[in-house]
Nucleic acid binder design. Sequence first.
DNA 1: CTGAAAGCGCTTACAG
DNA 2: CTGAAAGCGCTTACAG
Lengths: 335, 335
Amino acid sequence: MNKRARIADVAALAGVSTATVSRTLSAPEKVGESTRKKVLDAVKETGYRINGAARDLRQKRARSILILAPNLANTFFSRIFAAIQDEAAAAGLTVQISDSRIGRDKLATLGHDGRADGIMLLDASLDPALVNGWRLPVAQLCEWNDLYQAPGIVIDNPAAVHLAVAHLAGLKHTHLGHVEGPPDNVLAISRREAFHAASAERSIRTSILKGDFTMRSGADAARRWAELEDRPSGVFCASDECALGFISECIRLGFDVPSDVSVVGFDDIEFADRFIPALTTIRQPREAIGREGAELLIGMLRNDNPQQGSLRKIDADLVVRASSGPAPTARPDFV
Amino acid sequence: MNKRARIADVAALAGVSTATVSRTLSAPEKVGESTRKKVLDAVKETGYRINGAARDLRQKRARSILILAPNLANTFFSRIFAAIQDEAAAAGLTVQISDSRIGRDKLATLGHDGRADGIMLLDASLDPALVNGWRLPVAQLCEWNDLYQAPGIVIDNPAAVHLAVAHLAGLKHTHLGHVEGPPDNVLAISRREAFHAASAERSIRTSILKGDFTMRSGADAARRWAELEDRPSGVFCASDECALGFISECIRLGFDVPSDVSVVGFDDIEFADRFIPALTTIRQPREAIGREGAELLIGMLRNDNPQQGSLRKIDADLVVRASSGPAPTARPDFV
DNA sequence: CTGAAAGCGCTTACAG
DNA sequence: CTGAAAGCGCTTACAG
């Protein structure tokens, strides 16, 4: 075992051609039994392992998919990535990950250099010309951009927001706040619009507080909320991190959650149910999102027909926990 | 732009050989100015992009590193992965990720199929024969196994644990509990041993509670802690998740943290400082861990000399927050 | 059932 | 400075 054996070494040892070795390994039924045995013995003796890079070049494929996400450090993605990797591994594909905020040139290269078969895109903020210029199947996940000619898996954000608003309305809140996400993010826009629509349906007053999905922005929003003369008694945050930041800061400012303010988040991240108070939130089924996204992309690789642009929606549920309760004026002890 | 252009297409259009096209792209100074211009024009016109897979096969490298971790869904890893990807991208390398708990055959293949140049290993529980059989540079990260012939970057676990114990000792706790990690995990073993050593130095009594790093195990440990007749007043948990689970359950059982029990975690995950009470913990510099790990592995790829087995230790700090306080008998109101 | 030969798309001594 | 040719390590029609 000094050097890695190549297929020619195995062929020489077995006294056959490289073609026969190749067939023995990839389609054993096409090879005679005694030949097969000779080859397999030679494989064992040499410790031969197929060189995937060479096979892939010959077959013009990479056996690999690339995940492109706007922030790999975001813990929201980790379970999704894990599910994608599970599905991909089951299909014999490796998984590459890259931050989508690398330079434009690098991004363009990714779709052209033969080292990935398909792209799982979790970022809707890339230039559509760039994305549509990739010569590979692309599947969108979580975020979407109507200008991308690519199908995708997303959760039904408007429906989920309606659940959150209906929950707070059912608790007799008549003035709701919304800590929104970054103004140019498709998820943030969708959730804010749905918040307004769902509130309007119920004649609920609304106030918007700026945010950007982060805990820090949630804490900042809490300070601005506290300074309001007319404070909404229920606040729907565009993300859980934001909601946890909001609650933490409220508590630090001397308010109680939920008796002073009910808070509902979005995502159901790991700590949502361990936070005190445990967070009422919209549960995003991240495992299912990752799995279905991977299935979609893998299906596209197989059929080679990128069914342009159709988005499949997955339902997200409301999980009621301790951070939301009756509106102050609706509480029994105030009656 | 119907088909992807190959280097031969560019050469034909420019009226030169493929060798010249290749040189123009990879070592322009070796090509005459007018030739270079012709080639570059042809590249532009054809939209040619180098096929990385073909180049890599020819050069016998993959321009890619593989991260192997025991659980991709673990949020502790996300920032480390992000840092590795940053460093790798800067070095022109792509990053693959895989769960290390895929089958043994698949694992063995990874180190042999020419699709990765090096492996970043975050799992010390793999068979050393397997790991040492890889024909690639391997760098260990976070976890380590002395039987692996590979250098690595780890934090100084014993020193970190001493900080935690010294902190609790300084608060006059004379009986400490430790919720340990999984019994066969190298980090868990190292932390438990250091816990015993640091406690013994200070003549502190100790109690061990079983755990496995998870929140659930922390909550379970809290229930067992509550049933103890002689309860330690300070508890050091082997991970933050465990500590958060422990605290949550304590609160649910009617205990106060830190007045009934001080809790110290390990990791400093995202929510440690937002939890209520904010968690006193050992901060693992995850960005630095990822960055230095990547630098180590990339350096090994460059030099091609796997400096077998030396582990570099990074310091971890104690971050004091609200979950730890004076031992009950030491509190002023008891004096 | 098996082999000779071409070829995946590049790079790189070698020669001039 | 440039080109012809070999070769990275495989797979796959094609022919027998």
